[in-house]
């Protein structure tokens, strides 16, 4: 579903992604782990067609970026740590706006279904700026799944959420995965990643330095040990 080959991204003289390869099969849930500054957000922004790679090939659902970006965007849902919602519009109006942008059929019914799903149906006429951080993130997920995308990208979606909101988010993530959607999620929270993902990739210094299937990880402690080893290896080899 996602195929990345020899991806390079530079910001001026700084190279953020170094000839990176990455593959995700349809229906896989990949947790992309890595230290701060490893390039996780930059990588997701490239997949989301918000950032243009310097070199390399990116294909999503068979469509190539950046040439077929509109076709890719139609199949993508993105949740980041920012809600991408308008504070001066109500929850309903926000979803109606995005529904128009995605040309969704039977939009009003779909919006009500999504609001029901994220538990905000009774607040649908309230302005988003009156929502708590957790409610905004739930609505952000509603916005991202509104057009039922094949691929979901989550960039540290648990950031700033309380325990209840995290649990709610996890339920939505599981529901998305259960429907066979392909998911790539960056996270610093290894326990949550271990609970949700079917594969764990570690991105460090602009490359995937390690990858392991969930079946090979018995406990969260194993994942932590795997992660630490993966992150420290390049430094050790350089030293």
């Amino acid at each position: 579903m996602i195929r990345v080959r020899k991806l390079v991204k530079r910001f001026g003289p700084k190279i953020v992604l170094r000839s990176m390869d990455f593959d995700v099969a349809a229906g896989e849930f990949v947790a992309l782990l890595g230290p701060n500054g490893a390039g996780k957000t930059t990588f997701l922004r490239i997949l989301a067609s918000l950032s243009r790679p310097a070199l390399g090939e990116v294909r999503i659902a068979g469509y190539r970026l950046p040439d077929q970006a509109a076709a890719v965007r139609r199949r993508l849902g993105v949740v980041s740590h920012q809600p991408l919602l308008y504070g001066d519009l109500t929850a309903m109006e926000n979803l109606r706006f995005y529904g128009r942008m995605y040309a969704i059929d039977d939009m009003e019914r779909r919006i009500l279904d999504v609001l029901e799903m994220v538990g905000l149906a009774n607040r649908r006429h309230d302005l988003v700026r009156t929502f708590s951080r957790g409610m905004q993130q739930r609505l952000a997920i509603g916005r991202a799944v509104l057009h039922d995308p094949e691929v979901m990208l989550f960039d540290e979606p648990h950031t700033g959420l309380d325990q209840d909101a995290c649990a709610m988010l996890d339920n939505v993530l599981r529901a998305v995965a259960a429907r066979g959607r392909t998911v790539v999620m960056t996270s610093h929270d290894l326990a949550r990643a271990a609970d949700l993902a079917s594969r764990f990739d570690v991105l460090s210094r602009g490359k995937i330095v390690a990858s392991v299937q969930r079946a090979e990880m018995e406990t969260t402690n194993n994942l932590l040990a795997f992660y630490r080893q993966a992150v420290s290896e390049p430094e050790a080899s350089r030293g």
Partner: peptide
């Protein structure tokens, strides 16, 4: 600035439109 505040510009750019 209103588009930038909550990352809404990204939301607009993610839409599958010209």
């Amino acid at each position: 600035a209103a588009e930038k505040d909550r990352g809404c510009l990204d939301g607009l750019l993610l839409a599958p439109v010209d």
